[in-house]
Amino acid sequence: MSDEKPERVPDNENVLRRIFSPYHINEDGSLKSSAFSPSSNSLDISVNREAIADFAANCEIGKQEERPSPDGNPVKAKIFRGCVRGNVGEIHNKHMDEEKSMYCEVLATPDYENNNPSHADLRLPKNTRGIRKKLADLFSNLLEPE
């Protein structure tokens, strides 16, 4: 496995974040900042490059990942809700603190093992509530699958 840092995704691309949790969507379709909270001990948020797998393909990937709860409990089911879209250039150029010293990076991290060459990671400089809010503001409202 290579120790090299993955390449940055070009500024002119868009990335999509697939959304599964209803608790992360506001009534108006905007996203709560919690949708950009990384799991423990990570600073990476999984996204997909739209240039490699378009919106419809991402919906397809999301649908494939759906899982009903084994005991039928809807709270435990994982249901694909749709995607939100962000522009890579806007993400790269948005300063994440008042001192303008912290920025997010979008890195190309294709996942060939799971047949997902469009996979990328949105790397946070820190896991803070302020950074999550600024990121959420850079993404669109929920785009639902047709």
Binding site: S21, Y23, H24, N26, K32, S33, S34, A35, S37, P38, S39, S40, N127, R129
Partner: peptide, 14 residues
């Protein structure tokens, strides 16, 4: 407020 769970097991009050 609205409430949301975070991926690290926290709860957000927004």
């Amino acid at each position: 407020p609205s409430l949301a769970p975070d991926a690290d097991g926290s709860v957000s009050i927004i």
